[in-house]
Nucleic acid binder design. Structure first.
Lengths: 146, 146
DNA sequence: TTATCTGCAAAAGGTTTGCACGCCG
DNA sequence: CGGCGTGCAAACCTTTTGCAGATAA
């Protein structure tokens, strides 16, 4: 894989976003500062990075692809309301993996544990304690809960 | 929710297919015998069933929606090669859930554990022991490994 | 130099929606 | 009878692809 200005920008942009943006969201973010970078380049490179194991690809509730620059083992929490994906810094027991290998009689190469529910922001919004604010939502994009 | 001939057919077709077809696959299957049932009806009802908790919606590797008529707690294995989804009849420890709730400070309503790797068919195909056969692949659709 | 990467726009999925008609309760 | 369910086709949205020009090694 050859280096390029675009690859640097895309990877750096992803690392800034802890709440695992979709390719589209990341493209829009990048586009603000680098209007010369095309959609195709963002999609192509995110997929290439994921293939090479540099980043992780997560499929969201609606089927859109989210990307995660953190390769440490961890779980995910998807909010059923806003669809945002948060990290949970827990690891799976290797016990569970070998049990699953036994059941399937297949070599397991990776796994993903995803919990679902309402995130705190949405829960508060639902119970009337909180009214959504575009800016605050934007800020969340660059702040992790983990 | 009102009853209809279509709902019956769709639900029964899903129950026959243990390898969790996509909405599209299920539509094509149904279409063979019931050419008068439209795509929209299949999509609409599968989503409605999933919403009501009658079936489960699983997002596949490519982001397509797969559906699972088994509501017993279990895990999934997705083959990285053919994309088929198999059941693993294991349950998660409630311990893990409460730990995750602690970490996120959110009420967790559901979870999904997905393992990935090569299924036996694909592994054998890759190692040259096996050559894919359309009919056999089709048959797999109506046979579960669990 | 030359293979890989890029931007653009068009195409390609997969899924949803608007509308008029049909059928369940 | 009233309203939900359906079929059709068009719209939608996200992602991929083909191509000609640009660029890293």
């Amino acid at each position: 894989m050859r280096n390029s200005k675009q690859k640097d920008i895309i990877l750096r942009a992803l690392e800034e976003h802890c709440v695992h943006p979709t390719a589209e969201e990341l493209y829009k973010f990048i586009h603000q500062e680098h209007a010369d970078i095309g959609v195709a380049t963002v999609y192509r490179n995110l997929n290439k990075f994921a293939e090479k194991g540099i980043i992780r690809k997560i499929v969201g509730l609606d089927g859109s692809s989210h990307f995660d620059s953190c390769m440490e083992p961890h779980f995910h929490f998807i909010c059923d309301c806003c669809g945002k994906i948060y990290d949970i810094p827990m690891n799976i027991s290797s016990d569970l993996i070998s049990k699953a290998e036994e059941f399937t009689d297949c070599k397991i190469t990776s796994m993903d544990m995803t919990f679902r529910g309402l995130c705190r922001m949405c829960e508060e919004a639902h119970s009337g304690k909180y009214v959504f604010d575009e800016k605050e939502t934007e800020m969340l994009l660059t702040a992790s809960i983990s």
